[in-house]
Design a protein around this nucleic acid. Structure first.
Lengths: 193, 193
DNA sequence: TTTTGAAGTTGACATTGCTAACATTTGCCT
DNA sequence: AGGCAAATGTTAGCAATGTCAACTTCAAAA
């Protein structure tokens, strides 16, 4: 009675998300099956359905948490008093997060998940973008919106390419300084009025 | 005996790729099954395996053709005599291709396909990037490499965001002019020495 | 004409997402 | 305390999928 597992898990929902995230980051999304997650969590095949309507819902929750973590990383990144330096740091923080959690980052923008079906996820994504958006003030800059999108596109693109190992070996391995050199002139252009 | 299908298909390989591409662009990658493709091509379940070792190989071939098409689109896009205008046009051509073939474009950068396992695909991708790279001359610009990566990251990022409907409705629907406005200052920065 | 190899077929296996029907536990209501 | 409903698990099973092995058909070289 003592060593045998209790019927109820305790907090299966949280455990499922945690296991899923781990599997994704370890073996990739294609290697993730709901049954496998259940197995690793020590519950039966159908148990996850008490907490998530579908596999997609579970993935959406993992992605949502990813956006929250990215959001935090951005907040921590943009604290320099110099606006240019701050935006550059923030951009580097964005890339740092993506390269530290490549498969999670990919999931956050993956086609598996139709964001319109997962309002939580969509909102988390928008809130994250808002951090970048806040660096451009529409009151003083008529092109604030365009610049913000350009900035997001730039970091998202570089992150995606880096994750896919599509970049030169130099940039890939020693991401930091090289990436900074790539970003600098573009971020400067974004801050110019 | 005349109307019954012949045992041999003729050029099943080409047909499979064609059907697959159509399914992808119509219903998305997740809706594509090898069995379904075989069905639509009018052959049996196992027939595709005479031409592709796995589903992934078929997808890789579709993606490879996608890169060739993108390559062509870029070539056609960059013909203005003014270097700045030319690069801007080319960037717009890149975005145009991505938004005209959203799911194909996504496949080309999807995690489903491990590019190291498909040299053809990798090479096609590199050749495409080379078109952009050629706009920056290492002889006259010591930062040519960094600028090229920045340029690619920028257009790839904007393309991805647009495809995922992650952008404002305005930018989304009336892509052209808005995107141009976003790109302009950044492309200008890329051309500045 | 024979024969050989490419191209296609059928049938099967393990795995997967998901559902239905049933079992156990928890905690609330009296 | 006692009992009951809701929440949380379990087992069994379905249909679909990727892939493989064994067999058949056809075309073209010998």
């Amino acid at each position: 009675m003592s060593t045998s597992k209790p019927f109820h898990h305790g907090d299966l929902r949280k455990e499922l998300v945690s296991v899923a995230r781990e599997v994704i980051e370890t073996d990739g999304i294609d290697a993730l099956s709901l049954r496998g997650v259940a197995r690793q969590a020590g519950v039966s095949t159908a148990a996850p359905y008490r907490h998530f309507d579908s596999k997609e819902k579970l993935l959406a929750e993992v992605a949502r948490q990813g956006f929250e973590d990215l959001h935090d990383a951005l907040d921590r990144g943009g604290q320099s008093p110099d606006p240019f330096q701050s935006l550059l740091d923030q951009s580097m923080a964005y890339l740092g997060f993506a390269m530290a959690n490549p498969r999670l980052y990919r999931l956050m923008f993956a086609s598996h998940i139709d964001k319109t079906k997962h309002p939580d996820l969509m909102e988390a994504g928008e809130r994250t973008f808002a951090v970048l958006q806040a660096r451009f003030d529409p009151a003083t800059d008529p092109h604030a919106a365009a610049r913000a999108i350009g900035c997001w596109g730039l970091v998202h693109g570089l992150a995606s390419l880096a994750i896919d190992n599509q970049l030169d070996a130099h940039v890939q391995t020693d991401g930091g300084p090289h990436m900074r050199a790539i970003l600098e002139p573009l971020v400067r252009a974004l801050m110019a009025h």
